[in-house]
């Protein structure tokens, strides 16, 4: 247990010490909530913008941590030979993976506390859908994490850095996180619906935004990515 706890602590500490990680996982989400919650320019419909923004930005925060942050950090660890070196210690790969997953979940809890607090201050009234919300976040974390490790495991660290950030931006735009899916052209919305970002944002809009059941397609898409992502990563990951 001691190596695992030490590894989790190190992973969390390294993320919180990395300026760009804090910006990505906390800074940008907070700015998005405060800015678009105050300046009503997004096509979020007739209700208060924060009702749409809070779940959408929470979904973005999950994607930032479990996909982008994990991918970039792991890519550089691979490039610097850290993963190779750890392979020759008693920590072992299963415990390294467990530590990374635990660290992601801990960071997501920190994000949720901060972003919910900011959203409440902006006048958000969440509905009681926390149970399904936690479930979809865990599924999405698995799917995003798999995609992140898929990129980190095959691309060079610098290429992966660009790819992960690029993917983050594309998914941000076509995910229903900031812009409702209904505002997208039909074909784009159709593509978005099979991606984990839109499935997560719609699930959170329903569960904690509107207080309605999570749509079936969200469960299916998130469940499929939760299995396919890590599987693809496991099949292609190169440790050095």
């Amino acid at each position: 247990m001691r190596p695992l706890a030490a590894q989790v602590t190190a992973e969390v500490r390294m993320t919180l010490k990395r300026g760009e990680s804090v910006l990505l996982t906390l800074g940008i989400p907070v700015v998005l909530i405060v800015f678009f919650g105050s300046v009503h320019v997004l096509p979020t419909g007739s209700g208060k913008p924060i009702t749409f923004l809070a779940p959408g930005v929470l979904a973005l925060a999950v994607m930032s941590t479990s996909m982008v942050n994990l991918s970039i950090a792991t890519g550089f660890e691979r490039g610097y030979g850290v993963l190779k070196r750890l392979g020759a210690t008693p920590l072992g790969r299963p415990r390294l993976l467990a530590a990374k997953i635990t660290a992601i979940v801990m960071l997501e809890v920190i994000q949720a506390v901060v972003l919910v607090a900011v959203s409440l201050a902006m006048g958000w009234h969440p509905t009681s859908g926390a149970g399904p919300a936690v479930a979809v976040v865990l599924l999405a974390t698995s799917g995003f994490g798999g995609i992140g490790l898929l990129l980190a495991g095959v691309l060079k660290a610098e290429v992966n850095l660009a790819a992960a950030n690029g993917l983050w931006l594309v998914l941000l735009l076509v995910s229903g996180m900031l812009v409702p899916l209904a505002k997208l052209p039909g074909w784009l919305a159709a593509v978005a619906r099979v991606l984990p970002a839109a499935a997560l944002s719609q699930a959170l809009h329903h569960s904690i935004g509107l207080g309605t059941p999570v749509p079936g397609w969200s469960w299916i898409v998130l469940g499929a990515w939760a299995i396919a992502g890590p599987l693809a990563a496991a099949l292609t990951f190169r440790w050095e």
């Binding site: 190190a10 390294m14 010490k17 990395r18 550089f76 660890e77 610097y80 030979g81 850290v82 190779k84 070196r85």
Partner: peptide
């Protein structure tokens, strides 16, 4: 190792 092996930060 011949090079690397430590977290850069």
């Amino acid at each position: 190792l011949q090079r690397g092996g430590v977290y850069p930060a």
